[in-house]
Design a protein around this nucleic acid. Structure first.
Lengths: 341, 341
DNA sequence: CTGAAAGCGCTTACAG
DNA sequence: CTGAAAGCGCTTACAG
């Protein structure tokens, strides 16, 4: 007899009863616990009954009993940023393959960070946290470590944490400078991210190092937020203060949109007067006026690597820094060219 | 004595013991259950102890015991779309104010929708679902209704469901046509969304109705996906097939970006040759070349209304259609002007 | 009105 | 190797 309760849902007891095994055995079979060695026939019977009843383990009960929620919390600085969307998507997929669910939350820089994120874990909602929104003095950072909660930093590293999952950001900067230098540019401006973010500093350092190596005459840098407006303002200052400037490397697509806006507003042309290159490749870049050259970063691999690292940590492994072993790539669409003259 | 267990977390039993009340009483006080009427002094003692111990209810246990997870699942068609980000943010905030957590998931049109979403609820992860990704034949739609799971449709209605939370989409179309007609345009093209989405049909209907009312000579419509490339292709067809066309109203910012791309590629100017207007206002619009005129929709209010409707439904209220009572507004930045000649 | 007890649906030592 | 029993941390009828 098919027995059900609670709104028609079959529970483990139903499966066990109908398959004529104990709940323990049913549980172990359904969870692929190695120690159980029932006859193949019995195992199959349990599986069949579970399928027939449409049995779904109640995650909440499972979490309470087993001490694990099989969920990961993912914090991003802003949902709006398509860059994060790409990483999030990949994190979702990877997590699912590993038997985890991902809960995304937005953790904007401005907001007071209440302790609700650490509580996600403390309260049994998640087994660990992927932090894509790290910044210096973030209250969460110290708190998580102190409370021994599994966590990794994605994309925005926390120096010395020993749990950073990142990409070869330095290679991106070198690639950008090499590209411009190869075209013959001597004065290249860099619109960098906020100075207090480690990612920004790393990108800038890589840019400066490469600028020196390639013998650029000037390599002015400005540090501003990642949005369009900030990019526009930074570009204006760069162009004004460096008359010889013929190229700009922006550290986000948003900033690059602002750069283009300013260049046009100043009556200059892209790429004839000023070449523009953006960090991160997204579909939007192709349809801007003009279409933008970009450095494509391995964001999909980043999301996957972060989930793997976190799940290993939850499994008891020591935290470790991870760098995605995929090199950034140039995507050229015509927003850069040799300087005039 | 401060007693704790499980990784330093205080549990209800700790609070009860230290405050010298029963767990039942502690639970009721902490949950503001009306029926409990202890001395104010006792109540305060419990509250103080809970604060002192940093007590956080274990959501998983609470969900299992009480039958409610106090979490809502929110499905959006794609995380990348900033429009959804705005709504999501608002949903988060509203939910928090009502004592709920929101779990966001991406539910892209292409993907086979496994039953994992309904399972979010069935498995005790969420008490209800906000569906922003509805489309005809979506397996989830029938399933949720059959299983009696609380849910509402946000932004993309399901006709006849009686649980749609939406905005005055028709007003947006009328506003767009009125704007162009007022400038003197006679042939206005409309880049609409996918024809199988009810939202798209409603927007198109509103556009056509207004076009008739304002006596436009021609009002060609094309139905394409919301992305940049589709907008670009649609614009090309519209311009080619309607030589007198002087204005285009696109139904997403992404499409509008594509429209601009095409107009430029054809060697035409904005707004001198073709005026462009986009549905949905976002920061990006201001920094495009040229900055885009838009119809701003009340997305923040939409997210809030959806959460309220769902929570009421969870509370036992009958589902009902809701329309956010805030009118769309024109945001003008110079991408539209009177037609030449 | 209060507290002891049962129970939410599972997992996992532990005894057989 | 298997199954009975305890227990995860709460809430909520139910008896006092």
């Amino acid at each position: 007899v098919t027995v059900r309760n609670r709104g028609g849902r079959a529970v483990l007891a139903d499966v066990a009863r109908q398959a004529e095994v104990s709940m323990s055995t049913a549980s172990k079979i359904l969870n692929n616990v190695a120690s159980v060695s029932v006859r193949p026939q019995t195992r199959q019977r349990v599986l069949d009954v579970a399928a027939e009843l449409g049995y779904r383990p109640h995650v909440t009960a499972r979490a309470l009993a087993g001490g694990a929620s099989h969920a990961l919390a993912l914090l991003v600085p802003e949902l709006t940023n398509p860059v994060h969307a790409k990483m999030i998507r990949s994190a979702f997929r990877t997590a699912r393959d590993l038997g985890y669910t991902v809960l995304v939350a937005e953790d904007p820089a401005g907001a007071r960070t209440d302790d609700s994120f650490a509580d996600l874990v403390a309260a049994g909602h998640a087994d660990g946290i992927l932090i894509g929104s790290a910044r210096p003095g973030h209250p969460l950072v110290a708190d998580l470590r102190r409370r021994g909660i599994p966590h990794v930093f994605v994309n925005r590293p926390v120096p010395g944490s020993g749990r950073n999952v990142g990409m070869d950001v330095a290679a991106a900067g070198a690639l950008a400078v090499a590209h411009f230098a190869g075209l013959g540019h001597r004065v290249v401006g860099h619109v960098g991210g906020p100075a207090d973010l480690e990612t920004s500093r790393t990108r800038t350092l890589a840019f400066r190092t490469a600028a020196r190596r390639f013998g650029l005459t000037e390599a002015p840098v400005s540090h501003v937020p990642f949005d369009e407006r900030s990019g526009a303002e930074a570009a204006e200052a760069l162009v004004r203060e460096h008359p010889g400037l013929t190229a700009i490397y922006a550290t986000s697509l948003g900033q690059a949109v602002g750069v283009v806006h300013t260049v046009h507003r100043l009556g200059l042309r892209i790429p004839q007067d000023i070449s523009v290159l953006a960090y991160d490749d997204l579909p939007l870049a192709e349809f801007l006026s003009p279409p933008l050259d970009t450095v494509a970063m391995p964001l999909t691999e980043l999301g996957a690597a972060a989930v793997h690292a976190l799940v290993e940590q939850i499994g008891g492994a020591e935290p470790a820094d991870v760098q995605v072993p995929i090199a950034p790539e140039l995507v050229l669409r015509g927003s850069s060219a040799p300087p005039r003259g």
